[in-house]
Write a protein that binds this DNA or RNA. Sequence first.
DNA 1: GCCTCTTCTGTAACCGGTTACAGATAATAT
DNA 2: ATATTATCTGTAACCGGTTACAGAAGAGGC
Lengths: 330, 330
Amino acid sequence: MTTIRDVAKCAEVSVATVSRVMNKNGYVSKEAEEAVLKAIKDLNYKPNSVARSLYHKTSKMIGLLIPDISNPFFPELARAVEDVALTYGYTVVICNTDDDSDKERHYIDALKQKYVDGLILATNQLTMEDYHDLNIPLVMLDRSNNQSTPTVVSKNFEGAKEATELLISKGSRFIAHIRGPYQVKTADDRYLGFKEVVEDRGIAHVVVEAEFNIKSSKQVTQELFDRYPTIDGIFASSDVMAAGVMKATKQLGKRIPEDVQLIGFDGIPLGEMLIPSLTTVTQPIYKMGTIAARLLIKQIEKQPLDIMKYELETKITLGETTRSDSFAKT
Amino acid sequence: MTTIRDVAKCAEVSVATVSRVMNKNGYVSKEAEEAVLKAIKDLNYKPNSVARSLYHKTSKMIGLLIPDISNPFFPELARAVEDVALTYGYTVVICNTDDDSDKERHYIDALKQKYVDGLILATNQLTMEDYHDLNIPLVMLDRSNNQSTPTVVSKNFEGAKEATELLISKGSRFIAHIRGPYQVKTADDRYLGFKEVVEDRGIAHVVVEAEFNIKSSKQVTQELFDRYPTIDGIFASSDVMAAGVMKATKQLGKRIPEDVQLIGFDGIPLGEMLIPSLTTVTQPIYKMGTIAARLLIKQIEKQPLDIMKYELETKITLGETTRSDSFAKT
DNA sequence: GCCTCTTCTGTAACCGGTTACAGATAATAT
DNA sequence: ATATTATCTGTAACCGGTTACAGAAGAGGC
């Protein structure tokens, strides 16, 4: 490995001069600069970022804490964060916390010891105090629970309202909502949106909880139809859950959308792959990731933030799990 | 931030003693050890891994190079690598190369400068020489093109043979294979397995190329049926491609599996979510990831490798895209 | 009492960068 | 001619760990 001292020797200058050339600061004569640049090229010198980190107490790395990369909502988010990070010269470290606070704490400690420059939190099992004590820039992504930390979320409440209204407008009169876990803020917001609409409109409804995976929602759906066979519309809190609903209805011999209409939430690629394709509330996932990354990097680079909380618009993506005409079945 | 010097001062010993206590080497008296441990606890001291890295020239980080984390094959692989890495105290840095050699080179340079301890390559755009010059432990995952580097792949050739035989045994007589890109080794192996069986058995067949995404395979399928409407079996080189096939056949009014049987390759969770659920050649994806990670860490820790090339068994997962009886339609 | 060996400890150099500081030279102002 | 400033350069300290080395103290053998 070539070091700065090798370069200095080769260019017959001091290490300080080499450093000045590389960082373009301080005075360096034309000749010295050329000699250094030539030496760098000849030796194929790449400065060691660990040494740099040690002095600057920064690492050009950011941490991305997510529950689980195998949950299909997160890869696109991660990809967006990485794409932005790359253009600014940052490296992303993805950590799967499994919503386990010990794991999360462990990762945060490890990252801190590596002088990680900032964290994007798409998971939050710890208290805000824990995060605050870190003394590094933070961004909350997809989960907001705090005013003072920059946040990127989509309009879960409004999206859920639209989803529910869509089901009603297309003829559903007894609607079930399969909500996500109670402690998850986004699941709560979607539930509240649903609740507001069905209560306002006086629509029969039922709410059950499931985890954000296919197995759990499939089982919950089966139980749901067991008890309420007349349900004719389902709003699932995520697309993966909606896939579970489809599995269950298929087994039960219910037709989608003729007997039961279905709408999901997220807009992950899976929805399009399903047959029938899923009607869903699409979040701008990639965009959320890019905004979060930029927001974090701005903080790291001490630029002022004009907006602290981004609430992005969702939009309905019409698939084949809702009926095309409003009164196909009454 | 507390440093080792703070701890030394607090415990009234030298930094060397503190270091000796932490690393459990060299002689330390009982009293000194206790004082140091107390100081570490009182000050909540966490050694700085950057400083450690600088001295040891290692980072406890490994790089995972994949084409694209949003391709659903990779999250599970990444998850497996991370889970193993975590238990050995390593941090994983995932890099999306998009099969772009410049990007790959850039990432490798960046990782090298961070003293990354090893790399898992699930992508290979560069020549083996490029990798070899790095002088750090490597593992090839899912793509093998070299004898001297430890490798983890599944039996693509054999899996493809089984897939083709399954279609035939269940009655398909004109089979199309939608293969992956020519330069990808795994796509080639699957193609060769298919070729051997159809040629051996004298089955009518056709092969077309597509990318590993839904859009491309959907379009290719449409063109395929345009030209060969009598195709009654399709072997897709990946599950995502198979989803594209399903989309296309749906639009064309062909029924699966009554008119056309379909089998994919990979065994990603998506397959189960599809309706009908996908028959596929399941690779032990998670296992591949864990083996690759262990193989890499063994090398990093200078342990001998007993096996250089792992070729893992695939298994057929029967879904609803193939017929249950052998002669449903002749 | 003297020598050897084990146990224990601290000083200082090192990893590979960055930069404060001081010293040297050249250019410009007075 | 002298003072002032701008330009240029190298030495050495520093970031926060690790460890070679040397020295001190005590135990045990002769």
